[in-house]
Simulated assay, not measured.
Amino acid sequence: MAELIDLHEHAHGDVGEGLSNRLNWLRAGVLGANDGIVSVAGIVMGVAGATSNRSDIVIAGVAALVAGALSMAAGEYVSVSTQRDAELALIDAEKHDLAHMPEEELHHLTHMLEERGLTPETAAKAAVELTEWNDLRVHAKLEFNIDVDDVTNPWGAALASAVSFTIGALLPVLMILLPAGVRIWATLAAVAVALAITGWVSAKVGYAKPGRALVRNVAGGVLAMLVTWGIGHLLGTTVV
């Protein structure tokens, strides 16, 4: 019945347009920020472990930031474009079926409503009314959970991912510029706090309990930084 309530609210303007896309941008933004923090922190920590030369560290950090932001944007665009193509294909297929097999589609809608708890009589009446209201919207929502007015937008997701990655990556790049005596510990502390925040937000976005996500996010990020610093320190003392 939740789908019917959503349809009713959308029809009366109670649900803002673009909700699906806004949630998609938020997801891309949170993941982008998290990736920016972890990946760039790992790189600058690795370089800092190999050398104390600030210019080398900055070059590595900025290069990682730019490359990572572009990579995240491209990957998000390709991924969401594939999802969008699939959604549009399903909508087109449903348009064809509604135009060429209206009776079969009405029977299918009635059956779907019965599966959602309506009696056969009520389902048959509701199917007719919903078909007269907007048959394509109803079938797309109930069959595929697609809002025909809110198909996913790859450009929005790509932009959100690139911007959030850049913002997240700026933290370790700036922290690693501190004096040599404190830069490692300061970067670790700042990144741990930032990862705790993104872990909490990602859990809330996914309706999960934040505790485990927060600990998992912080532990993974700190471990990555320590490992890359150790590798950089080892290579800096044995290879260079």
Rank of each mutant, 00 (worst) to 15 (best):
L178I: 15
E114K: 10
E115I: 15
T166M: 01
M175G: 08
E103F: 15
E87F: 00
L106K: 07
M101V: 14
L109M: 10
A180R: 14
G181Q: 12
G168T: 00
E129G: 03
R84Y: 04
I146K: 02
L109G: 04
R116S: 15
V128T: 15
L174N: 07
P120W: 01
A126Q: 14
T122P: 06
D135T: 12
H107Q: 10
M112Y: 12
P102G: 08
L177W: 11
E121G: 10
N134Y: 01
D97N: 11
D150S: 04
L170R: 00
P179F: 09
E132T: 03
E94A: 06
L171Q: 02
S161H: 05
A180Q: 13
H100R: 13
I91F: 01
D97F: 10
A86S: 02
L88N: 00
L88F: 03
H96I: 13
V138R: 09
L113H: 04
D149G: 08
E115H: 15
E114M: 11
L178Y: 11
L130N: 08
I146G: 00
L171T: 12
M112H: 11
A160M: 03
D150K: 02
T82W: 10
T119N: 06
L88Q: 02
L142M: 13
A124Q: 12
A180P: 09
D150T: 09
G181E: 12
